[in-house]
Amino acid sequence: MTTPWGELELARFPDDPRDRLRAWDASDEYLLQHLAEREEEQGAGLSGTVVVVGDRWGALVTALAAQRPVQITDSFLAQEATRANLDRNSVETGTVHLLTTQDPPPDRIDVLLVRVPKSLALLEDQLLRLAPAVHEGTVVVGTGMVKEIHTSTLQLFERILGPTRTSLARKKARLIFCTPDPSLERPANRWPYSYALPDGIGAVSGRTVVNHAGVFCADRLDIGTRFFLRHLPAGRGARRVVDLGCGNGVVGTAMGLANPEAEVLFVDESFQAVASAEATYTANGVPGHAEFRVGDGLAGVPAGSVDLVLNNPPFHSHQATTDATAWRMFTGARRALRPGGELWVIGNRHLGYHIKLRRLFGNSHLVAGDPKFVVLRAVKR
């Protein structure tokens, strides 16, 4: 990546030589170019506390490392990519202060740079959490691809921080400029959001779900999960169960309620998701034992230590459609499962997960299906 301050070597995480997706895009380049032009005009660089929100793979904070920025991210993978990219470019990790969306933000923010997230709810939550630290002199610049910035995006900045305008598009990217107004009366933060589940979906019928902002389908139960809940494995044989890519944790909670003797491990790469899963599990008074882990799938889980893995894999990485995450999840599940252990997967029918499972496990069994979804079971031999 070419920046106004030199060349950077960047990669996504986990680093895969076959991955053709870059660790930055035109919106990152546009923001950095704007900051360099601003520095040239004013004869000085950024000063004070610099906070970068939503930096997807660490490209922004690596380029701005001389400013000792604070990075705030919901993604474990983004944090790991940032550490790797700082090391790759001979920047000490301590130069950048890494925070999650669940950590308290800095008390004062002098420069706020926002990489617009896919989730409008996550943007809303973060702006409301950061607003008390923003003052009249804070420099606020957002960035994103044109297709990611909508009228609703600009309205959030306007409603929470102050008057907002946009730049001209450049390489299909756009900047957002916001002038903070400390006197603005901000709305209350509605996150986390809770709702009661409908009847007819097994052990969690009528139970409570808690969602932090940014979790998939945070305001309702998505139809794929609803279908999965109706076809979860019955019986009490599984002692160690994993809700892999747990989201709000409703699937693992259902297993815990149906099988109180089981230990349930909730895993997701999203800090917001794992916080939601823990809140959902706690809200329903599940009698068994649970562990909540933010991480890269089942990395770190001992091989052969799991009886059952339940998985609804994502097929998007930000704006890119890819099966890389699903493949990593399936591979990690096979390693973690004991012989005879099972991986249960819910997916859109057209994704063809049965082919991947047969390649990896040597078998794939259809548990249930409808015109849109299939539930598949693979057994480790």
Results as ranks from 00 to 15, higher is better:
R236I: 07
R170W: 07
W344K: 03
T138S: 12
A218P: 15
L257C: 11
P106C: 02
A238E: 13
L112S: 03
I346Q: 07
L21Y: 12
E40V: 15
L8Q: 05
G300V: 07
F157N: 05
Q33S: 14
D110A: 00
G224R: 03
Y195F: 15
R12F: 05
E92K: 09
A131E: 15
L86S: 12
H289N: 06
V50H: 00
P106W: 03
M329Y: 11
P14F: 06
I149S: 09
L244N: 00
R239D: 13
C217W: 12
V134M: 12
E263C: 13
A78S: 15
S152L: 15
Q71Y: 04
R230C: 14
R12T: 08
G200F: 07
H354V: 13
P233K: 07
T49R: 14
T225D: 03
A275V: 01
G249E: 00
V286S: 03
P180A: 09
V70M: 04
A320Q: 03
I109F: 08
F361P: 05
M1Y: 12
R68F: 11
D370T: 12
R230H: 12
D15E: 14
V53H: 03
I346E: 06
S119N: 07
R230P: 09
V251K: 05
T208W: 05
D268M: 07
G247W: 02
L122I: 04
V264K: 06
R240P: 04
L357H: 05
P198Y: 08
A131P: 08
A63Y: 06
T2D: 13
K171S: 14
V134R: 07
V251H: 00
S167G: 10
F266L: 06
M145V: 09
G48Q: 05
L8S: 04
G256K: 09
S90Y: 14
D307V: 11
E136S: 15
